[in-house]
Design a protein around this nucleic acid. Structure first.
Lengths: 187, 187, 187, 187
DNA sequence: GATGAATGAGCTTTCATTCAT
DNA sequence: AATGAATGAAAGCTCATTCAT
């Protein structure tokens, strides 16, 4: 039955978002989900695996949407949509954003999160391919992808991190979206 | 004697940079520094306090330099110097950058790191004041400071995080520095 | 169907021999045998019962052979055949020997292994009866059976334990077999 | 202070002898010794290390005595004294004998007990050297040491294992001691 | 200033076993 | 006859911190 598994994931998500990865204890997840210790380990091999499962599921929607958009031929529209989509998603899920950020940072140190890192990076790579095509079409500047990525997404990340879950005014969102395009477009 | 205290800080820094905050155990710090448990607690109230002390000291150089520059009247030079300074510092101290990032993220969740957050944010506030003056002087766009900050520093943060300690080419640094200014200058 | 039961026993044997009784987990047995947890508990009441079943089956060949021999009237031939048979069996099944040894030791502490102990001791008791007859016939010394048993089988046990699965030279086997007889024969 | 450490060892010994290695839980040792979990781990790295420490201390007396005797020139006296000493020690410390036997068996499988095995085997090696000298002096048969060891000590081991802590009559002890010598002396 | 013994709550994980289907 | 989800007690061990000396 998928029911129990889902209950566990639901409980785990709450705890992870509230306390972060290290702060989340299996005991808390057990209590929140109502499942027994054994059940949890019946479905998941450990804390890291649960986090990965959650993250995968939770980011699916955003990453799929972004990826679709980015593959278009209209560079300006694609880039603006990506940034706007990310900002909106991040604002709507501030804790999830923080958790993703946490795991991503962790994946640079621990091996436990290789899969997480892979997943989170795959979207970035796909976008890099699209960017290369726009370069060929002389729509954007010929920048190394990591530079272009930093210019496009960096400000969005920064404001999400510093907004701490508070609302970002529409004007600010618009400003950052516009700037992302201006930073990389062909001059 | 300040000697012991310094030995402890030295050992702790190594451990923190190598394993991150949670990964660093007091036992590891004790062994690395050669001090006894008692000594460590004689000088510091706990792990969080040590981390704060370290971070304060470690970021002093950069923050002082940046602050000096930012207070100047030449907006373009100040902003470019800030971004370039941060990029160079981050590249020279990639682990320290990651650690700072870690603590900063943590400070958004746990109360233990209020002082850390205050310290790390004070530089940002000072820069905000300077930005306001530049706005008055019509040197830069009239943006909310958090947006301006995101536009100026966001890309630098992003590329440092994704470079994972590897060298960032001079061209890329130059690109990001230039873009920071272009993003906020008065058009 | 006896098929499933047999598959379980086969898998369990492999696991027991490889990891010993405590080291063998039901999960490992489940995976090795391909049966489900439920199936295993359908056929056996628990780990101890499986071990007992296995041991009974596995030692059958040796014990039957030894018992046949021992019941003969020719004391010298019987004793030498018993020791030689045990040494050969122990050499051919070093892991099984170690497992049997393990269970036997355990049966002296835990009550779970009463049946195991009984089974393993029954052969010894039968031999004791034969010994008593040989005493009456003045073929062997009038020793308490536990002493006689120690003199006859002790060296074989000792060399099997210390050989750790390596080959015991024929000369050594012959030496121990001969000595067993000399230790108890009527002088 | 050596006091706490000793209390822990005392409690641990009781628990180990009563329940064997696997059966002994750290919780039981904690309760029996009156020490806290932290204290136990302050002094010992884990269960295996405690067992090794205990065994070393506990067998010291016997192994030293045996070793002294074995080094003598009088083969008959040395061998008889070794066997008698072992039988007496084993009878006086039946649980310790069983525990030693348990750990020794375990050391053949797990690496955790390398030191234990080394310690327990060192006495055997020393005796092997003495045996070689007796062979040169034509006092005993020219047998491989593992065979000679099996003939000399095997019966003593066997009767100790099967006596299960009960008293072994003096006659039986004498019989086994005498037989040990007869099995290996030069004919 | 300095030591390290002592603490104990809390951690993740294992595992034999039960039971509804 | 068979499945595998579910259980929960228990395990070994970690670790920041306290405190008597």
């Amino acid at each position: 039955m998928e029911n129990r598994r889902q209950e566990i994931l639901d409980g785990a998500l709450e705890v992870f978002l509230q306390r972060g990865f290290d702060g989340a204890t299996m005991a808390a997840i057990r209590e929140r989900s109502g499942a027994s210790t054994g059940s949890i380990y019946h479905f998941f091999n450990g804390k890291a695996e649960m986090a990965a499962a959650l993250l995968e599921k939770a980011t699916l929607e955003w990453s799929l949407r972004s990826r679709d958009v980015e593959l278009g031929e209209d560079a300006e529209r694609s880039i603006k949509a990506s940034v706007a989509g990310f900002l909106i998603w991040g604002q709507e899920n501030p804790r999830l954003f923080a958790f993703m950020d946490d795991l991503l940072a962790r994946s640079r140190v621990t091996e436990d999160f290789g899969p997480v890192a892979d997943m989170l990076n795959s979207g970035r790579r796909a976008a890099g391919d699209a960017y290369a095509r726009w370069v060929s079409a002389k729509l954007v500047q010929d920048l190394p992808w990591d530079v272009a990525y930093a210019l496009i997404m960096g400000p969005a990340y920064a404001i999400l991190r510093n907004s701490a879950g508070g609302r970002i005014p529409d004007d600010s969102v618009a400003q950052i979206v516009r700037s992302a395009w201006l930073s990389v477009r062909q001059q």
